[in-house]
Design a protein around this nucleic acid. Sequence first.
DNA 1: CACACCTAGTAACGCGCGTCAACACCATGT
DNA 2: ACATGGTGTTGACGCGCGTTACTAGGTGTG
Lengths: 319, 319
Amino acid sequence: MITTSEDVARHAGVSRATVSQILNGRGQRFAEATRDRVNRAARELGYEPSSAGRTLARGSSDFVIALIPHTTFGATLQDFFSRMTDELAAHGLTLVLRLSTPSTASLGRVIASMKPAAVFSLTRFTDEERALIGDRGVTGLDPSATNFFDYNHAIGLLQGRTLIAHGHRRLAFAHLADARQDPFGADREDGLREACREAGLPDPGSVGLDVTPDDAERALDELGGTGFAVACYNDDVATALLSAATRRGWQVPEDLALIGMDHTTLGRLTLPPLTTIDYDLEIAAEAAIHGILTITGHADTAERPERHARLRVIAGGSI
Amino acid sequence: MITTSEDVARHAGVSRATVSQILNGRGQRFAEATRDRVNRAARELGYEPSSAGRTLARGSSDFVIALIPHTTFGATLQDFFSRMTDELAAHGLTLVLRLSTPSTASLGRVIASMKPAAVFSLTRFTDEERALIGDRGVTGLDPSATNFFDYNHAIGLLQGRTLIAHGHRRLAFAHLADARQDPFGADREDGLREACREAGLPDPGSVGLDVTPDDAERALDELGGTGFAVACYNDDVATALLSAATRRGWQVPEDLALIGMDHTTLGRLTLPPLTTIDYDLEIAAEAAIHGILTITGHADTAERPERHARLRVIAGGSI
DNA sequence: CACACCTAGTAACGCGCGTCAACACCATGT
DNA sequence: ACATGGTGTTGACGCGCGTTACTAGGTGTG
């Protein structure tokens, strides 16, 4: 049931070497009739080269490992990876997803055994991870390698500027308490801090919370009363704070202003609806894809997508 | 930088065949001293067998492909797959995640080239998928193969019984309108229908909606007025309906009763908090893992986890 | 006619590994 | 002295593929 290049060769009446070359782009050297015969045979037999054989012969596989952050994997991220999967597949690369676990041992084993063409992560590699990848002779791609998809600073900055433009002057950033869930938090808070500096405001405060009624209330206490404008790690955090504030009888945005991030569907359902930031993953995906194709030597054109992050403020009623 | 079994052999002063056998459990036949030398050498050199070589020699790889449904990939599912990753790794299997795309072509290519030990899916394979997998001589595992993790019928049933126990008599099921996002909907509605039959009630109604304010309102209209008790596909759907009902001035649960599913954090934040169902993925994970180990011939013990779904109703204020 | 030079295609090798028949060695029995 | 039976180890093969040196046949050139 499994078709090998040998089968294709026999079926086309040529040698295996011929098949291999024709199917791998080195086909100019052959007569057009032969090319056609081979291509047709491959198609008719449903031939799909064995990844293992190919890997062995070439020294590295066609797999690209994407580390997926331990954060909610909503529709946006799904589309992102879905897009990447298709685009890379068009270049013969197979995207494979791995949950990024705290223990790097498992990642090390996978990299060593898989010999991926590249390792990709939306979050910055830890030093451990970087070492692991480098040691195996694999190239990694993370936001630090290119600024194309490091929008997190820009996100915090935009949140800050938006709040400030609305006249808010006491700013704070709300993280997710669980650090694993908060992979982009530090960068975003950085951005917020920069916005404060620009406006001559003191550095923003910082709280961390779980998305639960109780912990949101605690976070409100930690913040220290009303009058704050909070840039939230994401819409879930904003929703939790909004809910706690409402229960407490605070008016949003008068007593507490909130700006979220992600433009989630649930964020549109609150009262007031959240003001939030929309993040164009389309462009980020393009950048990531281009980066990977470059690394793996598949980049067809030298042109690189120069467009920058397209962040949009989605007006709600929470600031 | 890459260590091969040849290196290990040289370092331990034995042949490659010896290394291979000792490292693959066929080591009883060797002297203990030799075993130790080989194991130590492998450890010192950080040897990790090449997946490609192994695959080629054995005919099938150590990869297990998990198709992840096109639905929100929240903390629960993450934990589920995280657990599977670790557990399978302990048996030498590498779990690899793939987004399940509508087009099966891509999946076919991946299966053909990867020769996975198994393909796993939380949702039932489509006929296309099943054919694809079978043709390549790969075994698949989906809920239909074992009832261990097909809890969806049970979920709908429990939602129905719970609503009925609270005195509700006009029931309906609320799907997500986007079929891709609603992979478990049909099974759950089935369960709800059974609950209605049990109680001698007419078949439940059925609506589909997007999680947006406007579409939730439309769904309320489609339902046809107040007095319904709605079993929702998940907490997001319930939240959308709750939000729309509140905006419309309906009282929950008096005018509209809602029961969700998933016990999401955001569902705890609404007013009233959602009554919902909690799903013990731990047990489902065990079942799935056991299934895969059986398929791949790695099952160490014949004992199979006999425990059944542990579904719990989480009391809120919405029914 | 000898020679160089293309064109079209192939034989042969090695990638890293698992497997198994075969072998060397030694102790035991006859 | 030789056969017998372990025990411990290895040589050699093949998995499917990409690659390279090479051959066979044709086409000019001096």
